Amino acid sequence: MMRILLFLGTNLAIILVASLTLNILGVGSYLTANGLDLNALLAFCAVFGFAGAFVSLFLSKWMAKMSTKTQIIEQPSSAEERWLVETVQELANKAGIGMPDVGVFPSHASNAFATGWNRNNALVAVSTGLLTRFKPEEIKAVLAHEIGHVANGDMITLTLIQGVINTFVMFLARIVGYAVDSFLRRGDNNSGGVGIGFYIATFVAEIIFGVLASIIVAWFSRRREFRADEAGASLASTAGMIGALQRLKAESMAHQEGELEGQLTAFGISSIKKQGFMELFSSHPPLDERIAALQARR
Score class of each variant (00 low, 15 high):
Asn152Val: 03
Phe277Thr: 07
Ala112Lys: 01
Leu212Phe: 14
Asp229Cys: 07
Lys135Cys: 05
Ala141Phe: 02
Leu36His: 03
Ala179Lys: 08
Gly258Pro: 02
Gln263Pro: 06
Ala79Glu: 15
Met63Lys: 09
Val85Gln: 08
Val17His: 00
Ser270Arg: 14
Met253Gly: 13
Phe198Lys: 05
Leu260Ala: 03
His108Cys: 01
Val17Pro: 03
Glu81Cys: 04
Thr157Leu: 14
Arg247Pro: 01
Ser270Ile: 13
Glu80Ser: 10
Gly177Pro: 09
Ile272Ala: 13
Leu123Phe: 12
Gln246Cys: 07
Asn11Trp: 11
Asp101Gln: 13
Leu143Cys: 07
Gly28Ile: 00
Ala112Trp: 01
Asn190Trp: 10
Val150Lys: 02
Ala239Phe: 02
Leu245Lys: 06
Gln263Lys: 11
Ala79Thr: 13
Val142Thr: 04
Lys65Tyr: 00
Asn190Thr: 13
Leu131Gln: 05
Leu123Val: 04
Glu261Leu: 09
Val47Pro: 00
Ala112Asp: 02
Tyr178Asn: 09
Lys65Pro: 00
Ala228Gly: 11
Thr167Lys: 05
Gly187Ala: 02
Phe226Ala: 09
Ser77Asp: 12
Tyr199Asp: 12
Leu248Asn: 00
Lys140Pro: 10
Leu264His: 07
Ser107Leu: 10
Arg224Ala: 11
Trp62Lys: 12
Gly243Phe: 01
Pro106Lys: 15
Met241Asp: 01
Val176Phe: 11
Ile147His: 04
Glu86Phe: 07
Glu146Asn: 06
Ala141Arg: 00
Arg222Glu: 08
Glu80Gly: 01
Arg298Ile: 15
Ala250Asp: 14
Leu287Trp: 06
Leu41Asp: 09
Arg290His: 11
Ser234Cys: 03
Gln71Met: 08
Val126Ala: 08
Ala173Cys: 09
Ala201Gly: 10
Gly116Ala: 09
Ile24Glu: 12
Leu287Val: 12
Ala95Ile: 07
Ala293Asp: 13
Gly187Trp: 03
Ile4Tyr: 03
Leu294Tyr: 03
Thr202Pro: 02
Gly35Ala: 08
Lys135Ala: 14
Glu86Met: 07
Gly98Ser: 08
Val104Thr: 11
Met253Trp: 03
Ile291Glu: 01
Phe105Cys: 09
Ala293Cys: 15
Phe58Gln: 06
Val126Arg: 05
